[in-house]
């Protein structure tokens, strides 16, 4: 079961929603390699977020095995889990006016003893990761005053402060304008080159084509298919997946997807 180069292993996993009659994932088997970028694609409700939550350990499977670096996720203590794996949600409820620095510092929680507050080192971590994401100028701003794109980058910075080996990103470029979209893609390419295993979901096959080493096609109540983006992101597959006509075309060496007739 243990493979040295597998970052995430899913074996014979069954998962049923509460109050549902039949399992949502049936006998799911997936293996994500270390340092790879894996994109989950599929229509709304196809289980992209649920799959990430199963990997995170937030949802528990009915049966089967989810392994992180060869250990069952259920057996990893929560602090250690927080040091290995970070989540970048699509958005987060913000109830109070935290400053960007205070918010990013929350990412140090898995490294601090329960009674400690973040110190100088932790603040340096936070500054570095804000720098890496390119938003050091926002450090003193209050969260409610930020734009959607800036908030997304703060969430990525907070995940980086966790110094994770695995990063889970839920629709990282959804609802962003082209400029912010490009910046996030650049950040992700930078993360990729540093050897972090990235699992992300996206609706946008064009972005998937630029980032992914492997693609998982998800359709609700069907067995997911995993493979290389070139093989899987074909006009036929995409048309079937989303139920609209899709054409993959080559423009100046880049693949684009045209939707509809």
């Amino acid at each position: 079961m243990i493979e040295p180069d597998a970052a995430i292993t899913i074996n014979e996993l069954f998962f049923t929603w509460p109050n549902a009659e039949s399992p949502f994932f049936k006998n799911l088997n997936l293996r994500f390699r270390k340092g790879y970028t894996i994109c989950l694609i599929g229509p709304n409700g196809s289980g992209k977020t649920s799959l990430m939550e199963l990997i995170l350990g937030w949802r528990r499977a009915d049966s089967g095995y989810v392994g992180i670096g060869g250990r069952s996720i259920a057996s990893i203590p929560s602090r250690e889990r927080g040091q290995m794996m970070a989540l970048v949600p699509q958005e987060e409820r913000i109830s109070f006016s935290y400053s960007v620095l205070e918010y990013v510092l929350l990412g140090r929680a898995p490294f601090l003893p329960p009674l400690a507050s973040p110190g100088r080192d932790d603040k340096n971590y936070a500054r570095n990761s804000l720098d890496r994401v390119g938003i050091s100028h926002l450090i003193r701003r209050l969260l409610p005053s930020l734009s959607g794109g800036e908030k997304r980058m703060v969430l990525i910075a907070r995940a980086l402060v966790q110094n994770p080996r695995i990063m889970l990103l839920d629709e990282p470029v959804n609802h962003l304008d082209p400029a912010n979209c490009e910046r996030i893609i650049e950040i992700l390419i930078d993360l990729k080159s540093s050897g972090i295993t990235i699992v992300m979901s996206s609706h946008d096959p064009a972005i998937v084509l630029r980032l992914a080493d492997q693609v998982v096609l998800l359709r609700s109540h069907e067995t997911p298919v995993m493979g290389s983006p070139d093989k899987l992101l074909t006009s036929k597959n995409l048309s079937e997946l989303y139920g609209v006509i899709a054409r993959v075309v080559d423009v100046e060496g880049r693949k684009l997807i045209l939707w509809g007739k």
Binding site: L56, W58, S78, G82, L87, E92, Y98, A109
Partner: peptide, 17 residues
């Protein structure tokens, strides 16, 4: 300080260990 963590929704607080 740790009280801060729980102003986040459950899943985010969980992901922070």
């Amino acid at each position: 300080w740790r009280v801060n963590l729980f102003s986040l929704d459950d899943r985010s607080a969980f992901a922070l260990g």
